[in-house]
Amino acid sequence: MPSAASRHLLFILAPLVAVFALLPGVYQNHLLLFNFVIFLILAQGVNIIYGFTGYLPFGYVGFFGAGAYGFAIMVMHLQWPAVLAVLVGGVVAVLLGLLLTPLLRLSGAYFAIANLAASLAVLHFVANPALEGITKGPYGVSLTGTFNPTHAYYAAVVVMGLTVAAVVYLKNSAFGLALQAVREDAVSASMAGVNVVKMRVIAWLASALIAGLAGGIYAWYVSVFYPDNVFSGEFSIFAIVFALFGGVATITGPIVGVIILYGIYNLIGFTTPQYFQLIYGLLIMGLVLFLPAGLVSLATRRGWNVP
């Protein structure tokens, strides 16, 4: 087992981090690279909670937005340095995750919809004019003091590295196996000695932390944003679709999904968002109908082992 894990770290994580650390030197569109890294993080976060645990997080963006606002509040009101504020973003997301742990009692569609509702509730809460003194309400925040896209980019690469490392761990550890066991059948898992509730909560909070850190870094990078930007449902949906397209409960699936789908998106370069919406809507439907286990299933069906 340890040898498989080190192989995964060496041949998947290391090249991925190296490529994204070096690319800014040779490729000029840094915003695009940054978005790639953010989606890699979010897709792997979805992988942890959906792929390994079986909860479909339709409101995953709630954690991302909470992280962004955690960052913004620290910077606006307490003038904290950016790196610490990013960590606070992660903590805020974890706290939100804790608040929402009762949702884990719900299964299937109930969880997905309740999670979606929760993210919208957080959006409307943050954007409420009554909270203008704290969050600036719907008027958005401007954080020019910490503006430093270069540092923010590398922070994102670090978080991406840690996230992928976490997935490598899940893929190669008894812990990851136990999570999947809980996903498959909670009663049998408990009779294998697994503390089902604890496992679910850990996975849930880990995926919340990941999205919160990503949100904090996003706020750092863009420095000016509105509630609608950082709570946009597109973050949830893209992350889920990218992860599903590649194949969940694997290390490489979400990575492949982001690189192919987000790559195609940017190559085509739609000027009108509705055409993209049409194409990804059709893509989602095609995916569910024809390739429900993702791209990697094309390989596993042939008996190849895909990490």
Binding site: L56, G108, I237, L244, I284, L287, V288
Partner: peptide, 18 residues
């Protein structure tokens, strides 16, 4: 169950886009 959620989400995107 899970896939139907995603499938109909895709359909809703298609309808909204069109």
């Amino acid at each position: 169950e899970m896939l139907s959620i995603i499938l109909f989400f895709g359909l809703s995107q298609v309808i909204e886009a069109v």
